[in-house]
Structures are given as structure tokens and as C-alpha cells.
Design a protein around this nucleic acid. Structure first.
Length: 398
DNA sequence: CTTCCACAGGAAGGTCTGGCGG
DNA sequence: CCGCCAGACCTTCCTGTGGAAG
């Protein structure tokens, strides 16, 4: 019987025309030929980097903008064009791209190791003194004899900024190679906590990428949809719906594309030959849940316990939650799950901060007068996500 | 006005894992 | 094998503080 239903399933799937022609155009890895609605930013960036074509080192650039505002895309686009023109003119230009948020590339040692590997130098992933790696890097760089543009994406997720200091000063140690840095961040306060020397050097030029508005998102989506989807399979208002929802979330184009892709996936799975607004709303829910579930699952045990404590408190008292209350529940949960001894309050305080950075909770420091200063903690997830989160946590902790 | 709570959050250092070269 | 290193994770100790209570 299982055999038969399975065959039916395959048959019905194959008998239908797919909704996607090329799903890739709706995925993050896709690089479009143009970057719509970022003309101004591209022009600015290009005018900063254009000095390269005269064989001069361009200024360092710091780019700020929320997620999904086209920072990475625009930077890569400009560098690509630049590289092409430089090649025509016989200018030696090398561009490097590194996403600092990736695991294994967010510490000084690993950044340098990454670039050395890209330069064709085999270095161990760990074990050597950073000093030695840095020396190797300087040596290799001076050998390549060209202008280098290094794009450091999500630069704010670096745990240690000493590499930034080294990189901004590396030119003093090089003879024929010149290094420029493009730093990309979605956190505007990042530069505030930076060593002033790094800050001034890194932001010789600054660029801001504003969020897309709903109209721009609609246009971006339409272009991609033309490539990705079979003509006539999109219901009325689907694109507008995706654009509107993403515009609410700080004009995030990635979010808009995800919404559309997942909506179509859902439509395809249930066997509809058209994607509708209802599918978009389902996609919205699914994306929310997936994101939170993914984050929670990948957290270490202790962090999961802290999250559980917050969820527990949320259920049993609707008002805002304080650090002390969380710690109290946390220690109880530790006993219950036999994870002894519990961490210190200081550490739990840091774990709470980490949960905030992950976007699961919001906190604000408040004073309760005689009753002390604390953080007011609020959950940053919707009710249906909350239910799912509890399930996942219960499962993880068991 | 002063007091004082309940933390925030910085600084320094300890411990452990995984990996290096010799 | 040793001694050393980076980095994750954690503790200890610490100083700082907004505002209700007294």
C-alpha cells in the first residue's frame, strides 16, 4: 500500500508543470547582472575605488546598512567591474572577500589563515602563534606586488579587533603592494566601540545603504520572479505581499526573496498550480519558526537552559522579567536536568546578552529604585513560534 | 537630601580542547 | 614525547549606577 501511494505521489508530482524554472534566482547565492535601486551607492563606491585604475591605493571604506540592503551585492559588483577594467589596463588588482561571521573566520588567526590559503599558502588551521601567521601574511602580500582590496563582510561579528588594527597598518610594512579595506557592517554602533585609530583608518570613507521601500522591493522581486518562475503561475498581489511584509522588516530584500521562494515551494508541495497570498502568509510563518528553531537548536546546553527559564517565566508572569528571576529559575532547571553545578550569575548575564544578540529576546536596563537596577527582558518571538520553541527546547534538553 | 538595592558589565585570569613543531 | 599556542568557556573580583524609599 505504501508502495502504491508513493507511486501515486511521484506520478502526480511529475504530471504537473513545475512552478519554478530556475529556483536559483530566488536564492541568496544568486548574483544578478544589475543591482537595482542601489545606483547611487554603487556610484559612490565606484568613485572611491576608481583610483585603482590609475594604480593608486583607494581609501578604506566602511559600509553600513541593515541586512538585505544590498551591501554585499553592491560591493562584489563594483569590485568585479573594477577587476575587469583593471585587467584591460594591465593593472595588477586583487580582491578578496571574507565573511567574518562564518565559523572559523571570526578570530585573528583564522582570518589570516583564510587569506593565506587563498594566496596558495598552506597553513595549519590552528597551533601556530598568530605572530608567525601574520609574518607569513605580510611576506606573501609583499610578494604579490599589486593593489589589494579586501572586503570584510559582517565585520561587526569579529570577536577580536586586533587583526583590524594590523590590517589597517599593514601598508607601512609593504613595499610594492597596497592594501585597501572595505568593511561591511549592519551594526552602526560597531565603530563606536572601536579603537579610535582603527575607526578613523577604517572609515576614511563611509557609505550608508538605506532600506528598500515596498515599491523598490516589488520591482526587485518582479525581476527575479521573471527569471525564476514559470509565467502566469503567480496569483494577484503575491509579489506585493512579499514586498510589504519584507518592508515591515526594515526593507530586507533577502527576506522578500525568501518569502517568495518559500511561498512557491509551499504552493508546489500542496499541488497548486498558482501561488497565492495565502501561501505567502504561510511562508512568513514558516520562515519565522525555522529561524528560531534553528537558532535554539544550535545553542549550547547552558544557553538553552537560560532560554527555557525565560520562556517559563513568560508563561507564569506576563510582566517583564528580570535577570535575577531568570537566574533563580535557571538554577532550578540545572538541578532538574542534573547539569550541576550551575553557572555563576555573571556568566548567565552574558548568556542573556547573547540571546539578545541572536534576536530571540529584547532587553533594556531599567532601574527599580530601591529595588535595584536590572534588565527588563522581553521575548521577541510570536506566539506560534513560542509554542514550537518550547517543544524544541524540551526535546533538546531531555 | 542621602541610602542602598540588584544588578550591569569591565578586567584579569583559570581550565580545557585540539593542534603545532621539534 | 614535550612545551607552546589559540580560542572557547567560565569564574572571581570589581566598580558603577538610576531612582524609590526613608
Amino acid at each position: 500500500m505504501a508502495q502504491k501511494t508513493l507511486n501515486e505521489l511521484f506520478d502526480s508530482f511529475l504530471s504537473r508543470e513545475p512552478l519554478f524554472i530556475s529556483k536559483g534566482a530566488l536564492q541568496e547565492t544568486y548574483t544578478p547582472e544589475t543591482v537595482p535601486h542601489r545606483e547611487e551607492q554603487i556610484k559612490q563606491l565606484a568613485s572611491i575605488l576608481v583610483h585603482t585604475l590609475r594604480g593608486e591605493k583607494p581609501s578604506n571604506v566602511f559600509i553600513y546598512g541593515k541586512t538585505g540592503t544590498g551591501k554585499t551585492l553592491a560591493s562584489k559588483f563594483v569590485c568585479g567591474e573594477l577587476q575587469r577594467r583593471a585587467a584591460e589596463r594591465g593593472i595588477n588588482l586583487k580582491t578578496f572577500y571574507l565573511n567574518c561571521k562564518m565559523e572559523k573566520t571570526n578570530t585573528p588567526y583564522r582570518i589570516l589563515a583564510h587569506f593565506l590559503t587563498e594566496l596558495g599558502e598552506q597553513v595549519p588551521m590552528t597551533g601556530l602563534p598568530t605572530e608567525e601567521i601574520y609574518k607569513k601574511f605580510v611576506k606573501k602580500m609583499s610578494e604579490i606586488n599589486s593593489i589589494c582590496i579586501i572586503i570584510l563582510d559582517e565585520i561587526d561579528s569579529l570577536t577580536d579587533t586586533s587583526t583590524l588594527y594590523d590590517l589597517t597598518r599593514i601598508n607601512t610594512q609593504l613595499k610594492n603592494t597596497r592594501v585597501s579595506i572595505i568593511g561591511i557592517s549592519n551594526n552602526i554602533s560597531f565603530t563606536n566601540n572601536l579603537d579610535p585609530r582603527i575607526k578613523s583608518s577604517l572609515s576614511e570613507e563611509e557609505l550608508v545603504f538605506p532600506p528598500y521601500n515596498a515599491i523598490q522591493l516589488t520591482e526587485i522581486l518582479s525581476r527575479r520572479a521573471e527569471i525564476a518562475l514559470r509565467y502566469g503561475t503567480l496569483g494577484d498581489g503575491v509579489i506585493e505581499r512579499c514586498a510589504a511584509l519584507a518592508a515591515q522588516e526594515h526593507g530586507d530584500a533577502r527576506r522578500a526573496l525568501d518569502l517568495l521562494r518559500v511561498a512557491v515551494e509551499i504552493a508546489e508541495r500542496v499541488g497548486n498550480d498558482k501561488t497565492t497570498i495565502a501561501h505567502v502568509d504561510q511562508a512568513q510563518k514558516k520562515l519565522d519558526i525555522d529561524r528560531v528553531v534553528e537558532v535554539i537548536k544550535t545553542q549550547p546546553r547552558q544557553s538553552q537552559l537560560v532560554m527555557s527559564s525565560i520562556l517559563y517565566l513568560k508563561e507564569n508572569n506576563a510582566e517583564s522579567i528580570s535577570t535575577g528571576e531568570v537566574y533563580e529559575i535557571y538554577t532550578k532547571l540545572c538541578k532538574k536536568y542534573n547539569l550541576l553545578p550551575p553557572l555563576t550569575p555573571r556568566r548567565v548575564s552574558d548568556l542573556i546578552s547573547e540571546l539578545e544578540m541572536l534576536g530571540l529576546i529584547d532587553t533594556s536596563v531599567i532601574s527599580r529604585g530601591r529595588y535595584g537596577r536590572t534588565r527588563a527582558i522581553n521575548l521577541n518571538i510570536t506566539d506560534n513560534v513560542l509554542t514550537k520553541s518550547k517543544e524544541v527546547l524540551a526535546c533538546e534538553l531531555a
